[in-house]
Nucleic acid binder design. Structure first.
Lengths: 189, 189
DNA sequence: TGTACATCAGTGAACGCGCGTTCACTGATGTAC
DNA sequence: TGTACATCAGTGAACGCGCGTTCACTGATGTAC
């Protein structure tokens, strides 16, 4: 058994990470297999030792990553929600495109993808909504769920739109507006 | 002067319309020039009688269209804002991908495009924000602008996310949550 | 009114080029003895 | 401990295919006489 199993798994993981960064920057179709492999320090031919196709890699790259879905700390309730919002709708997160949440960087691409990719995305969405749902209401009520999803739409939407404009000042204006509106909503009963 | 000037302009307009529909459905890179021309009832070679390149067409296709930016009616203030929200965050608009607002169908593609495309997009955004800004506050204040942009983030964001999930029920849940939250925000002072 | 003509929107074959994928190979590694 | 071996991660040339773009052409149209 030449090369340990860990070695192969590490390489595979590296490919996925590099792919995610490139997808975030340029979108799925605009990134070539060769480009990904070069960034991972390999040559393109070896790609198919790890994945059956470029599409298979896509599913894996969009999979909920830690940063985004499990930024849960020991805090809970209102404090946690505010912390998540501050981090998610932050200038740092907006500008760090490579490591950005796929929900922000790739919504259109995901909307056109197959069910596997979309379902991976739904997991991230639901995770975020869960954090917001545990704020102050009794979790599980129709109202609390609705408010949680509204907050998700606001936070993610604000970031998506901010990334879309050319004017840097307008982008910041949008981000801050989404941030303040979200905080206001959280504080309301 | 064979063929009237109107004839050429009409053909060009038809190409742009067909392109917009296809871009909304599949994104910019996934749509071929041939595909667009066939939908317009022409052959691909003629494309370059109308446009210098595929990119030039892209700029034009994303240009703010009537549906989206100027749904302004004779109403004004709060009533207008509510009407815009109801129409924009509607089930009809969510499902009519072909004629959807580019802000919903193409945010990621636009985020990766050149300045011309992004600036066209900014015009749409600002139009929408203006409608929301004239609600009940004194227009022009910092607060009213912030609230307007928050509403834009919420409405557009809710629609973008709803389009992204596979589960139809979840999509509707998200859309309704964004709709209700937006209405709530509009009614506040 | 009828005919010859010039224009140019539209046609479709052909072109390069770049991409995803395949495949015969190489050489670093862990194992057997 | 040292050596021969089998494995398989990684290499890089080659493949088809589809795309954007070009170009020589065709034929419908409006104009001149």
């Amino acid at each position: 058994m030449p090369y340990s199993a860990e070695h192969k798994q590490a390489t595979r993981g590296r490919i996925v990470d590099c792919a995610r960064e490139l997808f975030n920057l340029k979108g799925f179709t605009e990134v070539t297999v060769n480009e990904i492999m070069l960034l991972a320090g390999l040559t393109h031919g070896g790609f198919y030792n790890h994945f059956a196709s470029k599409d298979e890699l896509y599913v894996e790259a969009v999979q909920p990553n830690n940063q985004c879905s499990s930024m849960a700390t020991s805090l809970d309730g209102l404090e946690l929600a505010e912390q998540v919002i501050n981090a998610y709708v932050s200038k740092t997160h907006l500008e760090d495109i490579k490591h950005q949440c796929p929900m922000i960087a790739l919504p259109s691409d995901i909307a056109r993808s197959g069910p596997e990719v979309k379902q991976a995305y739904e997991v991230s969405l639901n995770n975020m909504a869960s954090v917001f749902e545990g704020i102050s209401f009794r979790t599980g009520s129709k109202k609390s769920r609705q408010r949680a999803l509204g907050l998700v739409a606001l936070c993610v939407g604000g970031m998506v739109i901010a990334r879309t404009v050319d004017n840097k000042e307008l982008a910041e204006e949008i981000r801050k507006a989404a941030l303040e509106t979200a905080k206001k909503l959280v504080k309301q009963t």
